[in-house]
Design a protein around this nucleic acid. Structure first.
Length: 140
DNA sequence: GCCAACGTTGGC
DNA sequence: GCCAACGTTGGC
């Protein structure tokens, strides 16, 4: 199993909206960046991910699971763009803020820190465990 | 709201 | 194939 991080502006698509989709999950559509798309193509059903709120909140707020492998993005006719589906697993007991992540030496290599603009990114198993721990949440 | 960082586009 | 111009993202 691999681990990922999905970034969203809460004003565009929030964790609450993601939860509301329930087991059915939702297309992670709208990504128009090759690096992010390529990561989604590497994902397998059952992979885990963090749901991160950018902009106003800047915190990891929940855990998600990949519920469908990469397929054409339904929001465009352009066949270059694929996306996966994800479903919410559970919120973090405590959101882990970007400030907290930056302050932790164990997380200094995170893509979130090094390339803040990448909207879909890989997370190492160590990073996964550490952030779940900081969020006082069972890593699953 | 600003601006730095980055990715993409298009002219040459 | 290079690079300047431009658009977008996201932290601050």
């Amino acid at each position: 199993m691999r681990y990922w991080l999905f970034k969203s502006e809460p004003s565009a698509w929030s964790w609450d909206q993601q939860i509301a989709r329930g087991e059915a999950g939702e297309e992670w559509s709208g990504v128009r960046n090759y690096q992010a798309r390529n990561f989604m193509r590497e994902m397998a059903v059952g992979d885990r991910g963090f749901f991160y709120h950018s902009q106003t909140e800047r915190a990891v707020v929940g855990l998600v699971e990949v519920s469908a492998a990469a397929h054409p993005d339904s929001t465009t006719e352009d066949d270059r763009w694929d996306c996966v589906d994800i479903r919410a697993l559970k919120p973090l007991a405590r959101p882990v803020t970007l400030d907290a992540i930056k302050a932790d030496p164990a997380l200094s290599d995170m893509v979130l820190v090094k390339n803040s603009r990448l909207s879909v990114q890989p997370v190492s198993e160590a990073e996964w465990r550490r952030i779940c721990e900081m969020g006082q949440t069972d890593p699953g």
